[in-house]
Nucleic acid binder design. Sequence first.
RNA 1: GGCGGUGUAGCUCAGUUGGUUAGAGCAGCGGAAUCAUAAUCCGCGUGUCCGGGGUUCAAAUCCCUGCACCGCCA
Length: 572
Amino acid sequence: MARHLITSAIPYINGIKHLGNLVGSQLPADLFARFQRARGNEVLFLCATDEHGTPAELAAAKAGKPVDEYCAEMWGIQAEIAKGFRLSFDHFGRSSSEQNRKLTQHFAGRLAAEGLIEEVTENQVYSNGDGRFLPDRYIEGTCPNCGFESARGDQCDNCTKQLDPIDLIDARSTISGSTDLERRETKHLHLRQSLMKDQLNDWIESKHDWPILTTSIAKKWLHDGDGLQDRGITRDLSWGVPVKKGDADWPGMEGKVFYVWFDAPIEYIACANEWTDAKGLSDADWQRWWRTDMGAQDVRYTQFMGKDNVPFHTLSFPVTILGSGEPWKLVDYIKSFNYLNYDGGQFSTSRGRGVFMDQALEILPSDYWRWWLLSHAPESSDSEFTWENFQSSVNKDLADVLGNFVSRVTKFCRSKFGEVVPDGGTWGAPEQALIAELTTRIRAYEGHMEAMEVRKSASELRAIWAAGNEYLQEAAPWSSFKTDPDQAAAQIRMALNLIRLYAVLSEPFIPDASAALMTAMQTDDDTWPDDVAAALGALPAGLGFTVPEVTFRKITDDEREDWQTRFAGVRD
RNA sequence: GGCGGUGUAGCUCAGUUGGUUAGAGCAGCGGAAUCAUAAUCCGCGUGUCCGGGGUUCAAAUCCCUGCACCGCCA
């Protein structure tokens, strides 16, 4: 039995994510996790919220709440929505956890001991009005170059000139508007990534089977310009993991915290510890997933993320892992995704453009979204969501091809044989041909799922559904019933078994519908069809079933038009 | 500005290391069937593979160049 450690990029805490975020990491990760579980493998699937940093502080301030309270609340909301989408995390953690605090400090201590951390004195802008240092992008003023009035501290959006915040005319804090700003010296820690450039390069170069998107982004950052740069890993903030060297204080770093990108990926590990703590398990139970000296040597670790997260996962986090000098599990495969666009433009969190996860669940059950998003996952390039495409895909694939198959089979059986798997008759050439085709297709499906070829998997699954309709058309039990009821019984018995088979195969994509079909067929036999012929005999003659309610309803033109206008505008 | 990505049928997209008449799903057209959520099944593609050069026996696929759209710039 293989062991799969699977993580999805952790979503930032300040608000509800849109469908583009969902399809770029959590959803395909869930697909893979569900598939591996269905194959009987051991899976630990983790995700969490990324909670630290200035945006969280500002969002909390805007909501009029203490930041920890705000984060706890938003975590609850995100966790609830994740459940709504049936994301099957073994644990949904928080980067602000005690476990992550300790582990982040531990890694910092190890990296310091390995000579990978450098203390650097910098000049940064301090706002007396806010009582804090301000990151460049929270400073605004008039551009000394072009006179643009709301140039940001790092760059003027009008003339694109790179700026130093101190050069801005009438510089002010965008947080409070205060103009009482000054330069202050402050000390920060830099992670010396550049020292590990060659090691990282060798590692990336060895990954021939990774998506080109992943390796090309990693190589760009490794080799662009002066090559991989060291990065500051601390900030003058209060909301974050306090800077410590393991358990020990870090002289000169009092009142500072680690920068989010340092502690966020460590949460992948800490999350496993949160999981064992929540379950009342021992440390050994999470370490066997994360420490190659404590049982993780046979673990295969796969990460899922959008392309914007690739640099952190291919370079920064590996520096933390490798640089620690300890036997932590390094990622084996990084599956990255391009962006999903919305109706001719980008999804926009700030402008409220597009469909957000909570809104999606308000208008349709999760299976509809899961199917469309996964079958259109932006794997090779950016892809696009349009309501027309969503409507036609969902109606055709789910309602017509799969849903109607279930309907026609169960209703025909009910009218001719009653709500029970009919007895009599035997398989002939059409059945053997069907088994042969399904065997070929199911093996292909498994291959694509194993390789995380999401779109290809969806397309193969759809073909497997269609094969049922093709078989019915050829067997025509409504016709054979008139002359040879036994033959019709064998044919419909086969068709009823196809429903169970489809439920098992489709579960990673559409878990709710799958469960409903299993219930309707009155079975809990979810054995994977390694032997297709045997799988098609799982429901024996005499077994009762119920005709399911409409498995997938259709999206009407009126609904589509309504949603189209509703989600084009601005979200409150 | 620098870097990167994308540009293939009306729509959404496949096209591995260059190699037979460039493919799938949807939409459209024609037919079959009537068990079913008017669903299903079968058949049907005269596409400047963004434009222009080049390499090659052979390019959607490699090189140069132009255009368009998009993203990133710590």
